[in-house]
Design a binder for these strands. Structure first.
Lengths: 273, 273
DNA sequence: CTGTTTTATTGATTTAAATCAATAAAACGG
DNA sequence: CCGTTTTATTGATTTAAATCAATAAAACAG
């Protein structure tokens, strides 16, 4: 458990003005409800002491605030405890590409350019809704992995999962049309959110909280928000979905799967061997 | 060193009809010239005995032959020793998306659906030119990583590198036009090939062997071969490149970098911390 | 070397999605 | 609650790239 106002906290707050440290008592790693899906899932209970020690603290990031920008010095890596974060890159022409949707249990912030203390994030990170983050100092990651090989294996496995998602997004932007690509994205997020909810404290539903704007969707799959709107409206008219007031309802799951060429199995977390 | 016609060899040959086992003497891991860039780069000399033992054998895959298809049972993971391989996915509509260009020293074949012996590759693999592969039995990967944490760290780092490339391809298909996207791809491959050549036995040059067809390029960045041709011809007319007879020459490196928004640093291999 | 297949090239036409533009509806801050 | 900002919606027009089509050139197999 990090001491309130630790050195690491102060460094982090200087650089990450949008963060607020959570009030004690913070969630402890050993009782963490999302642990079984997170980076430390393979690590036995009795070892979680050092996980906790490794962790800096929990922070709160308000809705629509930036956690870090591309190029910012990368002090920390993060696990999303609660909320919804997007990782993105801004191009020279001002356009934005969403690289990843981060959901609770997901690990992020380890992709950097350069090495050591000067390493900078390769992308930006933005909260779509108020989010709670567990921060870990980046510089200790390697020694932690050497102490706990399971951590490196977990990181490799999570990397593989992220890679699969990234490749599916690439297939979407590269070889699917707007309708197919949108159908896939909606189902992917629907399944990922629901999988995470089912992880204990909620039951199956055809509806999820969905905080993306149409521009966010467009920036994820390479379309303008205008065109995303037209396709979503058409899908609503066809009775496939309902998408309003930050809530997405899947009405024609089978039809959408057909359109988007989506199979839930392919986005399941991966295991090495 | 694998015994000729080992069990593993026989299993592999039944499933991978295009493979030919290399004649002895095979390259040994301990003297492998590409080791410093490959998965085992962090592993000390004295430990490479088991790497060699872990390895099944070296195989030859002829040009334009398929190593495996999506869904094939994944017996092996591979390091490309020499040649050029693409990983791809075929969509329901018959279109193809190239997911990754595999160059010597790169590791591939670990992305699978399912677990254990029934796991199937998530993508297909095709040699663009005659290629030499080192094969490792997939089922032993986890125990090997547990024995050698450095291997898991290496895998995580390579995964991160692949992820960066995949994200750049996503940015290309999502938010760049044909000209920008092609400029980026040509430079990426030019730098990756040259980096690998410089790794010992060749000097800087403005020209590389480039076995991609215009259709391969199009399938990598989501364009038709017709449109790729028009853009390449235009770039040739402008004196930026020369691209013919399976050879690519970069004549206007600065201008191409500007067009493609390419920075060599961003495709450099990543280190965790 | 020679017929066959694959790949490259170029023009004419169509189309999916972008752009431009103008409200309407929601969300937000005080 | 109220003015302001962000997001959604819809129509009209343009455009980058796809599609269709027809050689030319290169690569390949025997």
């Amino acid at each position: 458990m990090a001491a309130p106002q630790s050195d690491e906290f102060c460094i982090l707050m200087n650089k990450r003005p949008n963060l607020q440290q959570c009030a004690d008592p913070q969630t402890e790693c050993i009782t963490c409800p999302i642990r079984k899906m997170a980076l430390f899932r393979g690590i036995p209970e009795e070892e979680l002491g050092w996980t906790q020690e490794f962790r800096d603290a929990q922070y709160l990031l308000p809705a629509r605030k930036t956690l870090y920008r591309e190029g910012d010095i990368a002090h920390s890596i993060y696990t999303l405890f609660d909320g919804w974060v997007i990782l993105f890159k801004i191009l020279d022409n001002g356009k934005r590409q969403v690289l990843r949707f981060v959901l609770p249990g997901d690990f992020f912030g380890f992709q950097v350019n350069g090495t050591g203390a000067a390493a900078g994030y390769t992308h930006g990170a933005l909260a779509l809704v108020e989010s709670t983050l567990c921060a870990f100092p980046r510089t200790r990651l390697r020694s932690m992995m050497e102490k706990q090989p399971q951590l490196a294996i977990g990181l490799a496995e999570m990397g593989m999962h992220d890679m699969t998602l990234c490749q599916h997004h690439l297939i979407g932007t590269g070889r699917k049309n707007a309708r197919e690509s949108i159908a896939f994205l909606l189902l992917e997020l629907f399944y990922r959110v629901r999988m995470q909810m089912l992880n204990g404290f909620d039951e199956a539903t055809d509806s999820i909280i969905f905080p993306l704007t149409q521009e966010d969707i467009g920036d994820a799959i390479g379309l303008t928000s205008v065109h995303v709107n037209r396709v979503l409206k058409e899908m609503e008219r066809e009775g496939l979905i309902r998408c309003q007031r930050k809530r997405l309802t899947i009405l024609g799951e089978e039809a959408l799967m057909e359109i988007g060429q989506f199979d839930p199995g392919m986005i399941a977390p991966k295991e090495l061997v």
